[in-house]
Write a protein that binds this DNA or RNA. Sequence first.
DNA 1: GCCAACGTTGGC
DNA 2: GCCAACGTTGGC
Length: 154
Amino acid sequence: MNYWLFKSEPDVFGIDDLAARPDATEHWDGVRNYQARNFMRAMRLGDQAFFYHSNCDPPGIVGIVEVVRETYPDHTAWDPESKYYDPASTPDNPRWFMVDVRLVRKLPRLVSLAELRADPALIELPLVRRGNRLSVMPVPAAAWEHILRLAEGG
DNA sequence: GCCAACGTTGGC
DNA sequence: GCCAACGTTGGC
């Protein structure tokens, strides 16, 4: 099992929006970066991920989600009305993919980006590397467990 | 609102 | 294939 992190802007789609979906499940559409796409294609059923709020104050990790459907084509790329439309992606030859995630739980508290950055145990966390703008990225197992301990105060 | 750090585009 | 220009992300 692998661990991941999904970024989302709470003004657009926050963790409470996910919680309000039927079965607290939603497809993760709109990823238009090849590296992030490749990470999603590597996800397997049962993989867990942090839900991260970006572009807000304060940015940070707010919950845990689980992959409940593995990679399949992102249909929003075929919709001319969608802001994620990409005419280079077709049903016969899809370029962009998504997974379905289900909310496992919100964390007892937000673990802020500032706190993550300041923690020497999280040097290996891609999120805190300089200039990282990926919206989907891996989380090393040791970092995953460390962050959970931070959130749970133990 | 600013701007650093990216990724993408397109002329050559 | 190079690389300058451009657009985007996202913290601050």
